[in-house]
Design a protein around this nucleic acid. Structure first.
Lengths: 226, 226
DNA sequence: ACCTGAACACCGTTCAAGT
DNA sequence: ACCTGAACACCGTTCAAGT
């Protein structure tokens, strides 16, 4: 009989950190950061708002766990050649953040939590094999991580803002609008941006992101292809 | 008589965008981003919360204007040598964000507004004189700006978090704590961080920031000192 | 041990009403 | 034109009360 089920057996629909984070990610992916509310989360989990606090400390922990969940998968990349490993990690992060912009925002907002330690480690550990001198490794790893976090935040901001534009507006058009605004505010005052405007229009975000990685690696004196 | 003052004459304490932004900056500097509230702002200006909306669209515009105000001063730097100009701009931004962490957060959160256009321009316009090929200039400027924004966000996050620690804890100790947490979670899993731990402990944020700028410039093939 | 849901102390923003 | 301040529609978080 139903009443004789052991007490230690859990209802399959019982709450748990995992189920909560999973639901949070779904809400974040569908509605963006603003959509994640304890009330919305409780509704989706068919429970009360307070129940979530039994499993999770606060909203910050919730966001950190969701970000970890989405970023950790990227860190599994294994490439033999160190340069390719770094590029693969960087591109993996780029793609993950493109798919989950809120994770990019969280990463650049609370870097000491979440997966930034893993990112630092997996990039830094390639530098020996790349031939970067040990006393330069911290500077190079730090530059790479900061650059990646900067792009992550940017990407998240773009995604958030694109949401507010008339739907159908793609990224290139969005960037073009920004450049146009800057340039038109004072055409003579922005000669560089004016000169770069056309290049901006048809540039590839992903390729440009990778160019930055290569630039830093080149600066580290690793011009040879390892 | 007081009653005969012309109607066009303004009370010296009348509200204005300038006064509102000024008060907002004071609140932000003293209490951090969480302290800036329309109610707190209204109280400081001895007015009603709704009055502020007559001069300012919303909180986002308020933060953008405050950030612009604090960042714009940095852009005035004029250096003859292009490399020194870029370093001066970067360091100026670093210092400004250290003094006003909330501006760093805003910069990396809403880059298309505020002073990011000016930053892009003032850095990019130096690249010609630095000898960077024109087709590489967008990549280099973009890498520099993204790197700077990444550091800005990081810096803001550190400042926000340091506020929560027991007072007196300095930055170095804070970073050491983070590294320790990462390393101790799984010592064998973080060989690179473990190796770098001592270097982290006594590193100079400012110097490391500048090292990243130099790394990118070196990668752009501008090793000679212009 | 785990969950419920009302209640608390806030927010940003609006708006009828004043001067 | 500019300001007031109550009101609205939300938040995150807490907590007595249930099972």
């Amino acid at each position: 009989m139903a009443k004789t089920t052991q007490r230690t057996e859990r209802r399959t629909d019982a709450l748990s950190k995992e189920r909560i984070v999973e639901a949070a990610i779904e809400i974040l992916d569908k509605g963006g950061e603003g959509a994640l509310t304890f009330r919305a989360l409780a509704a989706r989990l068919a429970t009360g708002a307070g129940a979530i606090y039994w499993h999770v400390t606060d909203k910050n922990e919730l966001l950190a766990m969701a970000t970890d969940d989405v970023i950790a998968r990227v860190m599994l990349v294994r490439e033999a050649k160190p340069r390719e490993a770094i590029r693969a990690i960087a591109l993996g992060l780029f793609d993950a953040i493109e798919a989950h912009p809120w994770a990019g925002a969280q990463l650049s907002r609370a870097p000491w939590q979440s997966a930034v330690g893993e990112i630092f480690e997996s990039i830094g550990s390639q530098l020996d094999a790349l031939g970067v001198a040990e006393q330069a490794q911290l500077d190079v790893a730090s530059a790479l991580v900061h650059y990646i976090l900067g792009c992550a935040g940017q990407n998240a901001a773009n995604a958030t803002n694109a949401r507010l534009l008339p739907p159908g507006t793609d990224r290139a058009a969005f960037l073009a609008t920004i450049i146009a605004r800057w340039t038109q505010r004072d055409p003579a005052g922005f000669p560089f941006l004016h000169k770069m405007a056309s290049r901006f229009r048809d540039h590839d975000d992903r390729a440009q992101f990778l160019a930055g990685i290569d630039l830093i690696l080149a600066g580290a004196g690793t011009a040879d292809k390892n």
